[in-house]
Structures are given as C-alpha cells and as structure tokens.
Nucleic acid binder design. Structure first.
Length: 108
DNA sequence: CCATTGACTCGGA
DNA sequence: GTCCGAGCCAATG
C-alpha cells in the first residue's frame, strides 16, 4: 500500500453516484497523469476490499472496457447513466466535474 | 534486481 | 469515423 495507491483510492471514493470518470482523469487528479494504466490495476485488485466505485471508471473515449462490462453497465444504468448499444457513455453529459469542495478536500 | 504486464492515452495515417 | 504504434509507469513475480 503505497502513498500513490492510497491517494488514488481516496479520490475514487469521491466520484459521485450517477457520474463517470476516465482512467486518465483519476490519474491526473492523483498528480500523475501518466499513470492511467495503473488506475485499472488498482481497481482490478482492490475494488472489493476498499469498496471502490469501479463501475464509474471508463476509458477516455467513454467506452466501457472492463472484463465485467455486463455487470458494470447494469450498475451504471441503475445510477441513471445512459449507456448506448456500443457500451458507450457520453462524457459530455455524464463525466464527473470536480467542484470547489473537491478542490478544498485535495488541499488538506 | 530486472523483465513483464496491462479494465490506458495520444497522435498520426 | 477507423486502425496502428509508441509511450507510460507502479506493481508483480
């Protein structure tokens, strides 16, 4: 459990219901925009233990690419996120935009 | 220690 | 819009 991993987990827990974020976005917020691939690794290995909203994380194209995509889509739909027939989410509509509250939280 | 591994991303054709 | 190649880097073995 490294500081980087802890930070990523903490940020993931801040992604609100009904919104999605991209791997790169989480990487960027964690201070390491090159670590997108590592975000997926964290989700893969720690989602259950840390109760992470793994289903809200999709790729930069808005496409759902997880090995559990069927279940992921169900979870997203249940939160009100529209997923089209190509496993695609419109990021313009559903992508999480961190607000001032989040910025303040990041400070401390 | 060194090599491999990705639920990724970007830019160019 | 598609496809492909190169870059990325913490974690894993």
């Amino acid at each position: 459990m490294t500081p980087f991993t802890e930070k990523v987990i903490a940020i993931l827990k801040k992604v609100p219901q009904g919104k999605v974020a991209t791997y790169g976005q989480i990487a960027y917020l964690s201070g390491n925009r090159r670590a997108a691939r590592h975000i997926s690794r964290i989700l893969y290995s720690m989602s259950e233990r840390h109760q992470l909203p793994w289903h809200r994380i999709i790729n930069a194209q808005g496409k759902i690419v997880s090995p559990n995509s069927e279940n992921q889509i169900k979870l997203l739909m249940a939160e009100g996120v529209a997923v089209n027939e190509n496993n695609h989410v419109d990021l313009k509509i559903h992508q999480w935009q961190p607000d001032d509250t989040f910025a303040e939280w990041m400070e401390g």
